[in-house]
Design a protein around this nucleic acid. Structure first.
Lengths: 223, 223
DNA sequence: CTTGTAATTTAGTCTAACCTAAATATATTT
DNA sequence: AAATATATTTAGGTTAGACTAAATTACAAG
């Protein structure tokens, strides 16, 4: 049998992977929200993905889905494409941090394995994309992420920024302005018990910045 | 109204443009052959393209189609994407002459205008792609081509290669081997009345080569 | 000017992926 | 434990773009 993995199936798998990373199982509604389609349409597709050969998801009515091994491989393939593309667009065409996402979302489905390999080669086989997200390896293994939210640090702790959540372009632009980008070092000058704000000294920047919980939960660091 | 120009419509328009360049009107069968689909499917699409708003083709039953101004603009947009992409892939990812075509065929439909502009900029606004095909300008005008088939030259004439037909990868590899690539100078050493063969001295190559009609009709030069 | 062939069109189907509305299952609150 | 709210599924429908088979039109050759 071996049914074809269409572009929309790739999109489903990618988002299910990301939902699985956080929650566990991915719910019909969450998937629908991410794909901007009606929940009813998602149900139909999940049934199809579960009964394809080989099955790409494990699906129990009313209980969401998880990826099978095959589903995960297919998802990682797309994610590798996406993250390599983001890196490539920033490095070779001067795209900025916040502009690459939409472009990569369209390109990820159409590039060949050859294109993927040539990009990886040209970029020196990077392990993270411009936002610091880990890039699955060529044999489709997702490296483990050792980083923790900046929000979990306390006064006098020092760490290196590893990753920044990429789903809000405005936040990305802001972080770029205050110098919070991957591989930059920072130190917590103060932690406020009251509201969870952190006062941060960013290496290379003159003045300290105060960041709220909402932001510090989207920045990931290694001590 | 302004209906959306889907990927397959883009493909139809691109091939109709190319058929119009040679023949005049594009026939149902020719289009079907190029797109690898059944002629009956083409008829349906042509009717749709002719009655869309604005109309993209002029269609008279049993007499093939030509592009309208709107159809031509849409076609040139795709062709510009394609040719810039080929140039980009060769220049920045080390693709060879004969490998770029398939990749560009998929990418041409999904890149943004921004991507197009960045490529053009990075490449220094090239006027020809790696095979020497003219690239439509940013405002979608196809430059006029002054070149003529190598087959039309006679003994002792000298010319510069401008373009090579790109639809046969094997031919492309052969031409690369004997040094026949755009901007290379060559001289006709002999013309054979009998079979139309040309004996050619290619600048930078030690030994002369003899090329038959089939090949010399696919190489375009300027004297 | 008729007849055979090739090109084209019509008519009717199919599939993928979406939709809406209604039905049902699950979860939450009182 | 019932009542309500929320999440999910079912049922039925739409659209784009392909298909095959049959009908028609155009064209070329005797």
């Amino acid at each position: 049998m071996v049914e074809t993995i269409t572009q929309s199936i790739q999109d489903y798998l990618k988002h299910i992977y990301e939902l699985n990373e956080n929650g566990g199982t991915a719910s019909t509604n969450d998937i629908a929200a991410r794909l901007n389609i009606a929940p009813a349409s998602v149900t139909g597709m999940l049934q199809k993905l579960a009964s394809s050969n080989p099955p790409l998801v494990v699906y129990k009515k009313h209980q969401g889905v998880t990826l099978t091994k095959s589903g995960e491989k297919a998802a990682l393939e797309v994610i590798r494409h996406h993250r390599l593309l983001e890196t490539f667009l920033v490095n070779t065409l001067g795209y900025s941090w916040d502009e690459v996402h939409r472009e990569a979302d369209r390109l990820e489905h159409v590039i060949s394995e050859d294109f993927e390999a040539r990009m990886a080669e040209a970029l020196g086989h990077p392990t993270r994309d411009p936002h610091g997200e880990l890039i699955p390896t060529a044999d489709l293994v997702m490296p483990t992420d050792e980083s923790c939210p900046l929000a979990s640090l306390r006064t006098d702790e020092t760490a290196t920024v590893k990753r920044v959540s990429d789903d809000d372009p405005a936040l990305l632009r802001h972080l770029r302005e205050i110098g919070v980008i991957p591989e930059v070092k920072l130190t917590v000058k103060n932690y406020s018990e009251f509201d969870g704000n952190l006062t941060i000294k960013v290496s290379g920047q003159k003045s300290n910045v105060v960041l709220g919980r909402t932001i510090t939960n989207q920045i990931f660091v290694e001590k």
